[in-house]
Simulated assay, not measured.
Amino acid sequence: MSVDVITNTSPVIWLGRVLSGLAIAFLLLDAVMKLVPIQPVIDTMQALGFNSTTTLARGLGILLLGCTVLYAIPKTALVGALLLTGYLGGAIAIQLRAGNPLFSHILFGGYIGIFLWAGLLMRNNQARALLFP
């Protein structure tokens, strides 16, 4: 069965929107927590080995917010997904270097990445056509 036959159904498109929406909601929450650098954010950054400052937290928040907005806009969703994949890869590398648990910490960025890409491929015909010609 071809990719087009499977993904052009309305329930699949809606499932893609739900998956994308969940990923966007989590990433926006994470970005806002970094923009308003509350004490747990600062403490966590220090535990991960950063010389944590509010400037660094806000910079990461702005970066994450920008990438998430690009992902949320249909015309720039593919670029946003690529940028977010890089951001999440960095998060995975930091968790790995810190020696945190595999399934709850290290792979969490991978879980969000799966939601991002699955949602994008289910809801966006152009992204699907580009990746699966």
Rank of each mutant, 00 (worst) to 15 (best):
A91E: 13
F103I: 09
G16Y: 11
G49D: 13
A91C: 13
L84A: 06
G86Q: 03
R128T: 08
A93C: 03
A57R: 05
M33N: 12
L29I: 13
Y111Q: 15
L70D: 09
Q46G: 07
P40Y: 02
I106L: 10
G80C: 09
G119Q: 07
L84H: 00
F115L: 11
T44I: 14
L121S: 09
A57Q: 04
L96N: 09
G113H: 05
L60Y: 12
R17H: 08
L131P: 05
V32E: 00
I38N: 11
L22M: 04
L82D: 10
L19Q: 07
G21K: 02
G113R: 07
L121T: 02
A23Y: 01
Q126S: 15
D43I: 01
A127I: 14
V32F: 14
V3M: 01
R97E: 12
F50S: 05
L102K: 11
A91R: 00
G119D: 07
R97V: 15
L102H: 08
L27K: 05
G109R: 02
T44Q: 14
F26T: 02
L15I: 13
N8I: 11
I112S: 02
L78N: 00
G90S: 06
R128W: 01
A81I: 09
V18Q: 08
F26Y: 08
D30N: 13
G109I: 00
L64K: 02
M122G: 15
S52Y: 07
M1I: 13
G113T: 01
M122P: 15
A127L: 13
I112P: 11
F115D: 03
W14N: 14
R128V: 15
W14S: 10
F50W: 06
Y71C: 08
T68V: 03
A47R: 14
I92H: 05
S2Y: 03
C67W: 09
A31G: 01
M1E: 12
I62P: 09
P11G: 14
L64D: 08
I42A: 03
R17W: 12
R128K: 03
S20K: 03
L84S: 01
G89I: 03
G110P: 07
L15K: 02
G109K: 00
L64C: 09
H105V: 15
P101Y: 11
N51A: 15
V18N: 02
V36K: 00
S10D: 15
C67V: 12
L63K: 05
R58Y: 08
G89V: 05
A91G: 13
G109P: 06
G109A: 12
N100V: 02
T7I: 00
L130C: 06
S52L: 08
G80I: 05
I62R: 05
F103M: 12
V36S: 07
L121E: 10
L131E: 02
K75V: 14
G119N: 01
